[in-house]
Simulated scan of single mutants.
Amino acid sequence: MKPRSRNDDEKLARREAILDAAEEAFLQERFDKTSMDSIAKSAGLSRALLYVYFRDKEDIHLGLCGRASEILFQRMQQYSAQGQTGIEKLNALGRAYVDFYLEDTSQFRILTLACSLASSAIQTEEEITPSQQEFSEHESRIMGLMTECVQLGINDNTTNLAPESDPLSVAMQMRGSLHGVIMLQDVGGSPMFDKANIDRRQWLEQSRARLADSLKKQR
């Protein structure tokens, strides 16, 4: 493998500086109110230089999503390795997703924003940028890991899933359920939780445990 040159390191550092500036702006000012000019100013770079590294503001966000999804994947991989059976690994993946929200909240919100931007124009393969490619690869790794754990749970008979179940579909349902539970208590401060004096962290753990129990084979 060819060693990285000083120029390569400088380019990488500049790209990371742009992403750092954009992350702070997106989380503080909101994505729709953040301009390329404000990102450039925060990063200490010219607006023109931003376009050398990213196609547009949406592409910068996808670069952030690539970083966030890599953090999530590493956490999920670490947690799932602690389990032996399929259901143990699925339970661990649920804990990893909730802990990702609790301990890396800004990264969780970056990925959540990606969902709201998913309806943007569909890109052809020729138009795919490095940021899009990186994000897509990390997301594939996340769903691949979840799918493998679901399949293990089917094979070792520790889940109540039928042999003909589609592991990817189950993995998507699991991730969607976890995400929905998290967003229910997060969006807008969720006054109903405060009014009912519900401990959010405890509620999240109980909800995650119920989801895991719903997949567990009853002996």
Score class of each variant (00 low, 15 high):
5 S>K: 01
6 R>I: 15
9 D>L: 04
16 E>K: 15
17 A>Q: 10
20 D>F: 00
30 R>H: 14
34 T>N: 01
36 M>C: 00
42 S>T: 15
43 A>R: 04
50 L>M: 09
55 R>F: 06
63 G>K: 01
65 C>H: 04
67 R>N: 10
71 I>P: 03
77 Q>D: 10
78 Q>E: 02
79 Y>N: 00
80 S>F: 00
81 A>K: 08
85 T>M: 07
86 G>E: 04
87 I>A: 14
88 E>W: 04
89 K>P: 11
89 K>S: 09
91 N>E: 13
94 G>R: 09
100 F>L: 01
113 L>Y: 00
116 S>D: 14
118 A>R: 11
123 Q>S: 11
125 E>I: 03
136 S>I: 08
138 H>I: 08
140 S>E: 14
146 M>W: 02
151 Q>R: 06
153 G>A: 04
153 G>T: 03
157 N>P: 07
160 N>A: 06
160 N>I: 07
161 L>N: 10
161 L>V: 00
162 A>E: 07
163 P>D: 09
164 E>F: 09
176 G>H: 12
177 S>K: 10
177 S>M: 13
182 I>W: 00
188 G>L: 09
189 G>L: 01
190 S>F: 04
191 P>C: 06
193 F>N: 05
195 K>Y: 11
196 A>R: 03
197 N>A: 05
197 N>R: 14
209 A>S: 11
211 L>Q: 13
212 A>D: 03
215 L>C: 08
219 R>V: 15
